[in-house]
């Protein structure tokens, strides 16, 4: 079953088309990376799929619910970890998780479970604003998982993190693979290559190519994914 289906999804801002006729299907349990240079339309696509803004054309089904007409149902099915670390800085780690649990009507046992799963025990009583960037990102992803969503959106999850923090976060993301559908946007090519089942490359609001990292490399005639990405984007094929 498909977790996400977009049909002609379009977002027009006055004279700029941020997303242009996007047709995409993402299967259940898949980890799908959305790549593209700045302004390619990745973030706008994520914003539409998470009901942060409405499309000006087309529609998308998230777990069978329309983002146009069933936004409240879509919101119950998704978890989002935004680009910037979206935590309440004056609340403790546990309180941040409890906030999300209360909003989704989840049991408090779920909070304890996530604290264990993400190794947050030692810092559970610390205010989120006092944590390092790596710990805040880890908390941010844990918060997105409180409601046990069907689809998890990770917008640049490792942006600005050091190598160790990034590697630790990758381990946590890998552990989620197969259990949940993940849509990942990133500028790090090795991240997309290492984590994703399939990759979509966007350019000027359009989906340029969809496939596995291996397929992309084969199409570009290179064995390095970063080179393949650059070539595909530059040639626009």
């Amino acid at each position: 079953m498909a977790a996400i289906i977009t049909k002609g999804l379009t977002k027009q801002y006055k004279d700029v088309t941020a997303v242009d006729q996007l047709d995409l299907t993402i299967e259940d349990g898949e980890l799908f990376a959305l790549l593209g240079v700045n302004g390619a339309g990745k973030t706008t696509t994520i914003k539409m799929l998470t009901c942060l803004c409405g499309p000006t054309g087309g529609d998308a089904l998230v777990k069978g619910y329309s983002i146009m007409t069933q936004a409240q149902d879509v919101k119950k099915m998704i978890g989002v970890s935004p680009q910037e670390t979206a935590v309440a800085p004056n609340l403790t780690v546990r309180e941040n998780l409890e906030l999300m649990a209360g909003i989704y009507g989840c049991d408090k046992d779920r909070v304890t479970e996530l604290i264990e799963q993400f190794d947050l025990n030692a810092i559970a009583g610390k205010r989120a604003g006092k944590l390092s960037g790596g710990w805040q990102r880890r908390l941010s992803i844990a918060m997105a998982l409180v409601s046990e969503p069907g689809v998890l959106f990770l917008d640049e999850p490792t942006l600005g993190l050091d190598v160790i923090a990034r590697s630790e976060l990758w381990d946590h993301i890998r552990a989620l693979k197969g259990h949940i559908t993940i849509i990942l946007t990133t500028h790090y090519m090795e991240e997309a290559e290492s984590l994703s089942d399939r990759i979509g490359i966007m350019k000027n609001g359009r989906l340029l190519r969809v496939g596995t990292a291996e397929e992309m490399k084969a199409a570009a005639g290179t064995d390095k994914f970063e080179e393949a990405f650059i070539k595909l984007v530059k040639e626009g094929r």
Binding site: T50, C51, L52, Q72, K75, K76, I78, V80, S81, P82, Q83, E84, T85, A86, V87, A88, M100, I103, Y104, S140, M143, A144
Partner: peptide, 13 residues
């Protein structure tokens, strides 16, 4: 203006 509210906008609130 915070990113927390962006997250909360994606919840059923």
């Amino acid at each position: 203006s915070s990113s927390l509210i962006q997250r909360l906008y994606t919840t059923p609130l």
